[in-house]
């Protein structure tokens, strides 16, 4: 499988990564190379082999339903400064703030 310029443009948009127009073509080549390299794995015969979900032989760790975390709003908001809020204090009323999103 190889990617063209438009595929790269779409992937970049979905990932919210800004890619200049002139970088699309070279990126398409590089990404296609990587995919081609990984695709060698498909040469291995895997018919009837169940997908392996982990290299460690273990089952899903379970957590009991008890409240053991949270109640740390100050930590959660510690990095959330917002220059748009006049006070310079992002923790307006204890919320995160972001540029207005209205659907």
């Amino acid at each position: 499988m190889s990617l063209d310029k438009n595929d790269v443009k779409k992937i970049a948009f979905l990932a919210r990564i800004r890619v200049p127009e002139e970088a699309l073509e070279p990126l398409a080549g590089e990404l296609s190379n990587i995919i081609g390299w990984v695709e060698q794995l498909s040469e291995v015969e895997t018919e009837g082999v169940a997908p392996m979900t982990s290299v460690a032989d273990m089952t899903w760790p379970r957590r009991a339903d008890t409240v053991s975390d949270g109640d740390c709003a100050a930590d959660v908001l510690a990095n959330a400064t917002d220059p748009e809020i006049p006070s310079g204090d992002a923790n307006v009323g204890g919320f995160y703030t972001v540029p207005k999103v209205v659907e």
């Binding site: 917002d82 809020i85 307006v92 009323g93 204890g94 919320f95 703030t97 972001v98 540029p99 207005k100």
Partner: peptide, 12 residues
Amino acid sequence: HDQDPKRTFVDL
């Protein structure tokens, strides 16, 4: 969306 004219507030 109604707490501030320019910002959206988020509660997680």
